[in-house]
Simulated assay, not measured.
Amino acid sequence: MRTVLIVDDEAQIARALQINLQARGYTALTAGTGAAALQLAVSQPPDAVILDLGLPDMDGVEVIRGLRGWTSVPIIVLSARHASDEKVQALDAGADDYVTKPFGLDELLARLRAAARRSTTAAEPPTVSTPEFTVDLAAKRVRRGGGDVRLTPTEWSILELLVRNPGKLVSQQQLLLTVWGPAYAKETQYLRVYMAQLRRKLEPDPASPRHLLTEAGMGYRFEP
């Protein structure tokens, strides 16, 4: 485990955690909102997440559900909420552990190490290939027929999320939360427009896609 995503809107706590983790050899990323956390988790996939529940734009439980829609990365909740029902809700949503504030740094680091031992998260390939196109995740580059395919930032964000989860259903809500943010969680027409654009650029027959598949009423799936 090398990269940890810290999600907390209290800048002082986030910075203190970042400094302490970096001093112990981790790469520590920070996000102050749920939307920023979801976007960062896609663009720079962490090996673990430390998550506060009281975020300014959405409840931390929504972030857990959003992450669990496509990744099994260990999630440790770090929250001032002590009520047992809130702990149960977070754990049921997919959190691996729950630490209450105020907390001891040594205990949190021990829980992080324990989560790493239990984790089955696999290293993701830097390049994903299909017979028609290749996606270089590290370089953020798509090639088809020997040339580069120009994608908009939004098109890339959608494609990246799907390609990082080959064969898995990525829900409409997860895509909308990650790419556009919580204010757009029900704007499914956005997805239809952008998926149509991606298919025109990448699929040999956009009307009968082989790789960017729709699961009606649920979401989308990438098949290599």
Rank of each mutant, 00 (worst) to 15 (best):
R65S: 12
R65K: 15
R65A: 13
G66H: 05
R68W: 03
G69P: 02
G69Q: 05
W70R: 14
W70K: 11
T71H: 04
T71W: 01
S72V: 11
S72Y: 01
I76F: 07
I76T: 13
V77K: 08
V77Q: 06
V77G: 06
L78W: 01
L78Y: 02
S79D: 00
S79M: 01
A80N: 05
A80T: 08
A83Q: 13
S84N: 13
E86N: 08
K87P: 04
K87Y: 03
K87S: 07
Q89S: 14
A90D: 00
A90N: 06
L91I: 09
L91E: 04
A93M: 08
G94E: 02
G94A: 07
A95R: 04
A95M: 02
A95T: 06
D97W: 03
D97H: 14
D97F: 08
D97V: 03
Y98K: 13
V99T: 08
K101R: 14
K101M: 02
P102F: 00
P102H: 01
F103Q: 01
G104K: 12
G104D: 04
G104I: 00
G104Y: 01
D106P: 09
E107G: 07
E107L: 13
E107Y: 10
L108M: 08
L109W: 03
L109K: 02
A110K: 11
A110T: 09
L112M: 11
L112N: 10
R113G: 15
R113L: 11
A114F: 02
A114W: 01
A115Q: 11
